[in-house]
């Protein structure tokens, strides 16, 4: 399957998807760790995570998919929400909580 197709399938098959470096248990980058920490703080336990370090094709493909050059990337209900900064801002403002409830 084409990597863009695969990504589309992943983000639509799961309500919350995080593309990150490492795993939720062992994040390999502070920004990815930050995103995991926020999802955990919001009680989102069963999000689907993809370790881009062990998937080089997805690591490149995801940057094109969202026109976004950095990792992590958070998707909710198929929609690209943002990277570490935006996820933090939306958590602090309460917007992320509202999105996850909706």
């Amino acid at each position: 399957m084409d990597v863009q197709e695969l990504i589309k399938q992943q983000v639509t098959a799961h309500p919350v998807v995080l593309y990150m470096k490492g795993t939720p248990q062992f994040p390999m980058c502070g920004f990815s760790g930050n995103a995991v920490r926020i999802l955990n703080a919001l009680g989102v336990k069963d999000f689907f995570s993809v370790d881009v370090l062990s998937n080089p094709e997805i690591r490149q493909g995801i940057k094109d998919y969202a026109n976004w050059p950095t990792i992590p990337q958070l998707y909710i209900n198929g929609e690209f929400i943002g990277g570490s900064d935006i996820v933090s801002e939306m958590y602090q403002s309460g917007e992320l909580q509202a999105l996850l409830k909706g």
Binding site: C29, N67, W68, P69, G82, G83, S84, D85
Partner: peptide
């Protein structure tokens, strides 16, 4: 927010992919 960051990333082009590991923005 996403569009704003994309606009800034656009000015950096391939530098974001190659040279710059992380750019935190407000």
């Amino acid at each position: 927010r996403v569009q704003r960051h994309q606009r800034v990333y656009q000015t950096l082009g391939d530098r974001m992919r190659e040279e710059i590991h992380a750019l935190s923005m407000k």
